[in-house]
Design a protein around this nucleic acid. Structure first.
Lengths: 238, 238
DNA sequence: ATATAATTGTGTATAGGTTACACAATTGGT
DNA sequence: ACCAATTGTGTAACCTATACACAATTATAT
């Protein structure tokens, strides 16, 4: 049993199956935003059945760790990042979802500023994929990804969490591009700005963008203290 | 191991612990509506640590059954009802949430027409409790209940699921009382009616209420075929 | 039979939020 | 000096949400 738990879930061999009845794992949908695209961090599956397919980052939950803790651990191990936004979404428990045995998996998604992520040397099989271009993944991971994306889409309609995907200072154009990328819609620029200023979430940094080949926009940062939950209506889409 | 799985999770003894590392269970928050109150079906806990406390209905997930299937099984066993509304909400995985060992539990809620529920003879420890009057439950079941209630509240804002809590034919007053009970708010009667007719969910049965000591209201039934998802805005609150 | 109590069924006006839409100003690049 | 690209700004039309009152209907009590 110990050996099974020390390997990652994707290395489970069928010989291990007799050692437990049901194993539980976490899978993390790690979202990032780069070049106006929503991306997700994937790893090349090392299971033969899923030869050359990509999969989400996950691991078995240890007997002495909370579910959330396991999810943070996977995230920390793979991105080096601490203190990230993390939300549990759904638990996938189909009997045959994992070829090596009965493994139930709880899915989380997290939002990170992709620029902060320095891939580890040993992680040359990690890659940021544009969410829009992913058609298939190993296991039921495409379903998990879709479920987490839907949750993200509905969550940002009411909660100011997208800022986790941006650097501390950002322009309104970057913010709007991000909303458009997540929701898959085009928005009106004037209405977008109006709405955000009404919500009073943004603090003007009195700085301008650098290195843009056009008139630079002002930089803002998210000011959580101004977020008065429930006062303003749903922020998006504009 | 077999014996542990054949007992219900609430009868797990600490001697069973050595047989598995992590067990997985489902807990069902079974909602009903009666006498203008939202109720939940509870059972008297038989664990000593939770002497005299009530708990949700749950059971261990069997190695050969899906999570959803386990949840349906609990529901069928306890209510005799099939074909009910059931939705997974959240998985609770704190290391110490269960006194008998490491048990992770996936919470579901279901909506049933309380009148259809005929308590089994052997189930004299089952009871329908008004949700508003529940302050403590065994284990972390109060947290689970709260989480499921919140999910129900947000779900009915966009989806026509409350009809599962009503008999086939109902009056608009009953429907409004139900929304008010779930959301904990008072609504305007005229606006409520206007909104529902605009949404076009209701089919007029051309019948009147019976046995009410006042002018009877018309009876309606929910017509799912008229539910055009996304066409009308959030139905509630009025 | 009549009066009473309780509840149904109905419409309108106001306020507030959402949407559609255009042009001058600024910056970098050539 | 000009061009390309993008920022920053306001208003009118539309739609939705809310607040609100009275006549009609039924059962019940007298």
């Amino acid at each position: 049993m110990g050996t099974a738990l020390q390997r990652t879930i994707y290395q489970l061999r069928s010989e291990d199956r007799e050692f437990f009845q049901i194993a539980i794992s976490v899978d993390c949908v790690i979202f990032g935003f780069d070049k106006n695209e929503l991306k997700v961090l994937l790893i090349k599956s090392d299971l033969e059945e899923f030869n050359n397919q990509w999969s989400l980052l996950g691991d078995l939950v240890r007997p002495d760790e909370n579910l959330d803790t396991a999810s943070y651990r996977v995230l920390k191990d793979r991105t080096g990042l601490d203190d990230v936004y993390l939300e549990q979404v759904y638990t996938f428990g189909e009997v045959n979802r994992h070829p090596a045995g009965r493994v139930i998996s709880t899915a989380y998604y997290s939002l990170i500023n992709i620029k902060d992520h320095q891939p580890m040397l040993s992680d040359n099989e990690l890659h940021w994929h544009p969410v829009n271009e992913i058609n298939t993944l190993a296991f039921d991971h495409k379903t998990i990804l879709d479920t987490c994306l839907q949750r993200l889409q509905s969550k940002i309609e009411e909660h100011p969490i997208v800022f986790n995907l941006l650097p501390e200072k950002f322009s309104l154009r970057e913010l709007q591009n991000l909303y458009e990328a997540i929701l898959g819609v085009k928005m009106d620029r004037r209405n977008f700005r109006k709405k955000f200023f009404l919500m009073n979430w943004l603090e003007d940094m009195n700085e301008l963008e650098q290195d843009v080949p056009h008139r630079p926009g002002k930089l803002y940062r998210f000011n959580a203290s101004r977020f008065s939950n429930g006062k303003t209506k749903t922020p998006m889409p504009v």
